[in-house]
Simulated assay, not measured.
Amino acid sequence: MRSLATLSNADITPLMNPEKKADLIRAAKQIQAEGAKDAGALSFMARMLVLATLPHSNPGRVPQFSRENGHFKLVVQPGPDMGIPYGSYPRLVLAWLTSEAVRTKSPELELGDSLTAFMNELGLTPTGGRWGTITRLREQMKRLFSARISAVREDEGRFQFSGLQVASEVDLWWDPKKPDQAAVFGSTVRLTEPFFEEIVRRPVPVDMRALRALKKSPLGLDLYTWLTYRLSYLKDPTEISWRDLHTQFGADYNRVRNFTQAVKRELNKILTVWPELRYETPRGRLRLYPCPPHVDRVESAAPEDLLDSPNGE
């Protein structure tokens, strides 16, 4: 069984860049020293985007992208003249949006006076140029805010559908050439009513320090948020086949074997910031054991909806 007590630092991240490894260890020390709420790092993710997620890499100019989790299916369609959002940046933005919506209980969110201030919230360092963080973040935000998201659940005798778009209005006043400069007007995003209701109904609590430490890997972010949710109610050991996990998270990997190797690497990283995590990887599957969730589950009196108890979650 994997736990930090049985792993050396070399085992945790054997081939990792020293700087990335140092970031993980630093985050782990901060997390162990102080809980997410007390440290002001309590964040949230939309549950529908935990159970099935955005692509990890650029899917190209395709009409739609989909992922499945048992009876649950997530379909993402690009906005006009836009591509589908992918990678770590839209995941970090979604975590920020969900956290702010839960905190303020308002669909209209202020993104900060300057681009640098907002990027600091996401754990990103502003860099310019074609491949810089500023360019990539702006592009992914435009894709995310214009995308159409559909959540579908279909099983015997029942069909449920929910069509969502993240934002109804977006107004960004940041100057990419002057990221530190405060704009004359504040940058704002107004969430659509269906998306706002979805993310505040039953958000999944996560630690923003962990997200920042894992931000280089979309797969790592997906696994961390999913495990935090899954283990919040796990009562008995459970097993998920690598093939089922591949269907849920691994659409970017052509072969299940390659996906399995990637998951094992990311689990070792997650274990660094979450030493209580207990799991094994016997042949063909991932076995999870009950353990404290990384952040305590948020209780809700919301009625059953299309995300409740999908197979394979």
Rank of each mutant, 00 (worst) to 15 (best):
R2N: 06
S3H: 08
A5Y: 04
A5P: 01
T6P: 00
L7M: 13
L7D: 06
N9I: 05
A10H: 10
D11S: 11
T13V: 09
P14H: 11
L15I: 08
M16A: 15
P18Q: 06
K20Y: 04
K21D: 12
D23K: 07
L24C: 14
A27T: 02
I31Q: 01
E34W: 02
K37S: 04
A41L: 00
A41V: 01
F44Q: 00
F44C: 03
A46Y: 02
A46E: 12
A52D: 08
H56Q: 07
N58W: 03
S66Y: 06
N69D: 13
N69H: 12
K73A: 11
L74T: 14
V75A: 11
V75W: 10
Q77F: 06
G79I: 11
I84C: 09
Y86L: 09
G87T: 09
R103A: 01
S106G: 02
A117C: 06
F118W: 07
N120L: 12
W131G: 08
G132L: 13
I134S: 07
T135Q: 10
R136Y: 04
L137K: 07
R143P: 03
L144D: 08
L144M: 14
F145C: 12
A147S: 15
I149P: 03
S150L: 05
R153E: 06
D155P: 01
D155T: 04
G157S: 03
F161D: 04
L164P: 03
D171Y: 03
L172N: 06
W174H: 05
K178W: 03
A183R: 05
S187W: 04
S187H: 05
T188F: 04
R190L: 13
L191N: 08
E197Y: 06
E197L: 14
E198L: 14
I199Q: 14
V200D: 01
P203Y: 01
V204N: 07
P205N: 09
D207T: 01
A210I: 00
L221W: 07
Y229E: 15
Y229P: 05
L234W: 08
I240C: 08
S241A: 13
G250D: 12
G250N: 14
D252S: 13
N254V: 12
T260M: 12
V263E: 08
K264N: 13
K264E: 15
R265Q: 15
R265Y: 10
E266Y: 10
I270W: 03
V273Q: 01
V273G: 02
W274F: 10
P275R: 01
Y279C: 05
Y279V: 07
E280W: 03
Y289F: 15
Y289A: 12
C291W: 02
C291I: 02
P292N: 08
P293V: 03
H294N: 04
R297W: 04
R297Y: 05
S300W: 06
P303N: 06
P303D: 10
L307G: 08
L307C: 14
G312Y: 13
